[in-house]
Amino acid sequence: MTDRFDPPYPGYDILAKWDSVSFDDTTRRVYADRLKDVPERAFFSETEWRTLNAVCDRLIPQPDRPDPIPIAPWIDRALAENRTNGTRYTTMPQMREAWRTGLAAIEAEAQERHETAFSDLTAERQDALLRDVSNGDAEGPHWNGMPPHRFFRSVMLNEVVRIYYAHPAALSEIGFGGPAAPRGYVRLGADRMDPWEAPSDRRRR
């Protein structure tokens, strides 16, 4: 898999509808906060922060974006506020500890395999390491008994993906209709779309 992204809806931007009846004030406020109020690091240490950013870059690479969608700052913010998601598998520690343990373990894996910081590895080596963690093929004392695949899929990847696809630029790239209150949609059939939706998939034109 290359790092090239083939955009199906180039030029489509849900923010172009900002002043239309597809946006209500509540959604405008939420979006404005996300776009303008990117938080400073408050929870992670500098070392953890470096690993986290390198991990995010591989979980959701954004070489095509001059301004990548911020992911790590929102993970940090949620942990600084001690947020949880309502499910703690009993094989897992509390959310904050899970992240600290998981990032330290990824870093330790990189040192063990390549005697290099995770953030300094090549993309190929980073991906290989992360794939092993995802598949549960990484273990060792640095995981403190936490199942690597559970951390990877239920905690880390889940949160990264949710943050990425909460950003208007990510929603635009997949041709999502975007905010839709109060106007909603009229044309519901296959290959039918309202003028305020993305034009049809470029790959089919």
Binding site: M1, T2, D3, R4, F5, D6, P7, P8, R58, L59, I60, P61, D127, L130, S134, L157, V161, Y165, E173, I174
Partner: peptide, 11 residues
Amino acid sequence: FGMELRQRMAD
């Protein structure tokens, strides 16, 4: 994960 995921989401 990675670009493979983004590309899958393009569908």
